[in-house]
Design a protein around this nucleic acid. Structure first.
Lengths: 226, 226
DNA sequence: CAATGGGTAACTGTTTACAATCTACAGTGA
DNA sequence: TCACTGTAGATTGTAAACAGTTACCCATTG
């Protein structure tokens, strides 16, 4: 058995289309493209040094995730975030995370809570550093744990399909309400304790409260109606 | 302005890939392919007289809907329905339909309930004819109305992604429990009345009860664990 | 000046063909 | 029997070309 350290990682065992999807998603959520911008397959293919096939695959996925809008014979356009999107993402997320938490709270055992506590520790220390991007990363990491332990492939998939947009919201929130960095820890700690009761009902109530709070804050953002 | 009634619909402005998706989905859920069967892109392309492009697009979608399993460099395999699948689909459906019903009950107004009553009328008369396929169609139609009126594109999309598998379950249920055809009407009538109260909480409770009942029945089916 | 209609350019949708890559499986040898 | 090797078959990735459509410009018309 050869240790992992000495083997140089192979070019990529993932499908090219998946890689392209990740790259484009990051470029969109990272603000490298303007909302409404026309993404042309040929240009993207040239820029990323791949053919149009993987590009089309990626754009189809990004459309499912709501990052681009596909218009027949017109192409892909970067989505504009509307008030409706914020509402839909939050209500849907509330519905599935409620389910996820109810299942996860009885499956996380020690290991899951250990992972959570590690994230919480970092959240506490972030208060002093105040790097918004770290706050976003930790927030997502915390919730990823819930989805990982809920043991439900379909719920996980739905989460992945809205995760990118949630990321955008979190960034927008941090940009508009920098004071949130301070309450991030306490809110998540509260949710962790609710899960730790091991009672699905308590876990679900905890999620309802948590997601609702996030939504209420975000609603104060100034977004176009459509 | 020319009214919609007089214009004949154009040949088909849908993408070929979408058509292929529908055809393949129907073939799989209709039992034309054996579970576990290896679907080869080239064969499908030849059979449907299209190129591999649309086939790949269709297989990617069907994988998201859980009808086929895609193994890298191996191809597509028709999914085998397991006990886990039944559980996942029902719990996820419960979560989103709960949300959908809470929203729909205040948005359906007269028109929505009129549509529902029409479906209910047909359900009542099905009792005498006993065509299982009609029962499946009406059951789906009833719930489609809830999703249509919930005014939530993302929830609708999730529903579409599991709708095919729900169809499979309904068919299996009717095959194993033909007596269900008789209680179908009353259960849906009960749900309709809960929605008619216009109270989101009551609507959600109605859904919980309805979906749970469906799940309990289906669990009695003899399915492989995985 | 607004509305109509032709024409064009650009892009996507689809097909075809080929190269690269990977998996499974049978065969080989110890 | 076990591990390794090689090959066949299949899929993925790439490339090029054509067809269909859309948007836009612009001259024409009333």
């Amino acid at each position: 058995m050869i240790p992992d350290d000495v083997v140089s990682p192979l070019p990529s065992q993932r499908a090219l289309g998946d890689l392209v999807t990740d790259v484009l998603r990051e470029m969109i959520t990272g603000g490298r493209f303007q909302p409404g911008q026309h993404l042309k397959e040929t240009e993207l293919a040239e820029a990323l040094k791949v053919s149009r096939g993987p590009i089309r695959q990626a754009l189809a996925r990004l459309e499912e995730e709501g990052h681009v809008e596909l218009r027949r014979h017109r192409g892909a356009f970067v989505s504009t975030l509307t008030r409706t999107d914020v509402e839909e993402v939050h209500t849907l997320r509330g519905a599935i995370e409620r389910l996820a938490a109810g299942r996860a709270c009885t499956r996380m055992q020690g290991a899951g809570f250990a992972e959570m506590d590690e994230v919480l520790e970092q959240m506490k220390s972030v208060d002093t550093k105040i790097d918004p991007e770290d706050a976003v990363r930790l927030d997502l990491q915390f919730h990823d744990i819930i989805y990982a332990y809920c043991d439900h492939s379909r719920v996980q998939r739905v989460w992945e399909s809205i995760r990118g947009q949630v990321t955008v919201f979190l960034r927008a929130r941090n940009a508009s309400f920098p004071d949130f960095l301070e309450v991030g820890y306490s809110e998540h700690k509260e949710l962790r304790d609710a899960l730790a009761l091991g009672d699905p009902q308590a876990a679900q109530d905890g999620i309802d409260k948590h997601i609702l709070g996030a939504y209420e804050r975000l609603k104060r953002l100034n977004l176009p109606d459509r």
